[in-house]
Simulated assay, not measured.
Amino acid sequence: MPVFVKKLLTWGFVAFLIYFVAFRPDGAAQMFRAIGAALIAMFQGFGDFLTSLMT
């Protein structure tokens, strides 16, 4: 993918994120909570896997 397209998509995503947080803060907070919960569950599952390998 050309560098210009990557830059354009990155700045578009940043602009959308700022717009989303500014005009829909409740929705943005719920989305970040859901992402955080998914990451925690993923890492906890990975930790459980490693623990069961060691025992």
Rank of each mutant, 00 (worst) to 15 (best):
T55S: 14
M42L: 15
Q44I: 13
F46Y: 10
P25M: 01
W11E: 09
A29M: 03
A28I: 01
I18M: 02
V3F: 07
L53Q: 11
F13I: 05
R33K: 14
Y19V: 05
L39W: 03
K7V: 11
L9D: 04
A34H: 11
F32W: 10
Q30S: 05
T10C: 06
M54I: 12
T51C: 02
G12A: 10
A15Y: 02
D26H: 02
P2T: 09
G12R: 08
L39A: 15
T51S: 14
W11I: 13
A29T: 02
P2S: 10
A34F: 10
R24N: 11
F49V: 09
V21M: 06
A38T: 12
V14Q: 03
I40G: 02
Q44H: 00
G12D: 08
L50T: 13
F23R: 07
A15M: 06
I18P: 00
T10K: 11
F23C: 02
A29P: 00
Q44D: 03
V5I: 12
Q30M: 03
L17R: 07
T10E: 08
P25I: 00
V3T: 12
L17G: 11
L39C: 12
G45W: 01
P25L: 02
L39D: 07
G36N: 15
A37G: 04
V3Y: 06
F20V: 01
A38K: 07
Q30L: 07
A22C: 05
M31L: 15
R24E: 11
A22E: 03
P25R: 01
K7M: 15
M54L: 14
M31Y: 14
G47N: 13
G36D: 14
I18K: 03
G45C: 01
K6C: 05
F20N: 03
P2F: 01
F43H: 08
V21H: 02
A22Q: 04
M31G: 04
F43N: 11
F49C: 09
A37F: 07
A37Y: 06
F46D: 08
G47H: 05
F13N: 04
A38G: 13
Q44N: 00
W11S: 12
D26V: 08
L9P: 01
M42I: 10
A34Q: 14
